[in-house]
Design a protein around this nucleic acid. Structure first.
Lengths: 185, 185
DNA sequence: GTCTATAGCTAGATAGAC
DNA sequence: GTCTATCTAGCTATAGAC
């Protein structure tokens, strides 16, 4: 005991959980320290830039998840309908079936709005591009594909807000089903 | 000069602006005081419960706006299509064409999540009920009407998030147009 | 790499004069 | 009803021992 290093991945997961649940302004160094099991000074050792650097690290972490679980799957060579199902399942899991908020939304408000806007916008663009690609594969016309992709992000974000404030997680599943229906013509 | 009372309506408007733009945790008493033009002690005189009471007051204010600009219009005796247009215009104006965030979302995260969930959920329910009523009037089947109403809230909330992070306010207008199309069969 | 201890500041909140 | 002045608690951030 004492100076046994806490695993980077565990720290990232905990930071991710806190930011997503209380937001950027709602997260305090004390709270982040308690959640990770590290003391404040140790967190500053890993992230000299403090809270802002931690949030950037979490966004990098999410961008990587996004790349492997969404983009690479949607651009793979499996049957298009299969790709869609796998990705929607991953999304459902990411948000624990509608019970958990989206980290991108959590880092979009207050002080965080300007700090992380570019990174978040990039992630959204990546989603739209990947879903557009899938829609094309499924036989939609190009101009329809992009609208469908954008509508997918919109409905996921909107249904998450509603699911959480109404405490009806199923609202996310309904939205994911609607999305599936729209893609499969 | 000195003890000239600042108008209640102006104070409410300013509190509304601050909470919507920086969120609950992002709003400080100093910032709220500066925005309203009052000193902190004066704000506490009007709102002994501090920030929490101010946010409740803002939600009451919004609920009233909602009642007069959304519910009463949707339940009025004008032609149904006309009602829809008027309401969508009001919504577009409320969010300054996609440039401003939704106060309900701003008060849905962090510390605020549990504090105001019931009030926010009630407002959402009011919207769903009113849009459901309109959809029925427009000839949709009852089970379709409620799905359409819920989808309306979802798409407005989702498109606002996207509009602001992408800094493309037009995303809201596109969503409102899609909504209009869906209602008018 | 982790810790204890602490500096310096700003938060929310109150007392009391006018 | 508004103000100045102030309190305490919590915040971000750092110094320095192990």
């Amino acid at each position: 005991m004492g100076s046994l290093k806490v695993e980077d991945d565990i720290v990232m997961e905990k930071l991710f959980e806190i930011f997503r649940s209380v937001g950027y302004d709602g997260a305090s160094m004390s709270g982040l320290a308690a959640a990770t099991g590290l003391k404040k000074a140790s967190l500053y050792h890993r992230f000299p830039g403090g809270k802002e650097e931690m949030a950037h690290a979490v966004l990098d972490y999410i961008a990587a998840w996004n790349q492997s679980k969404i983009v690479e799957v949607l651009l793979s060579s499996k049957p298009a309908a299969k790709r869609l199902n796998v990705v929607l399942d991953s999304i459902n899991e990411l948000y624990d079936g509608g019970r958990l908020a989206c980290i991108l939304r959590a880092l979009s408000h207050g002080t965080a709005a300007e700090l992380f806007r570019n990174e978040i916008a990039t992630i959204f663009q990546t989603w739209v591009a990947a879903f557009t690609y899938l829609a094309n594969d499924l036989g939609h016309k190009p101009e329809i594909s992009e609208r469908l992709a954008e509508s997918t992000i919109i409905r996921i974000q909107g249904s998450l807000i509603l699911a959480q404030t109404m405490q009806q997680p199923g609202i996310l599943q309904s939205a994911l089903n609607d999305i599936k229906t729209d893609f499969l013509i």
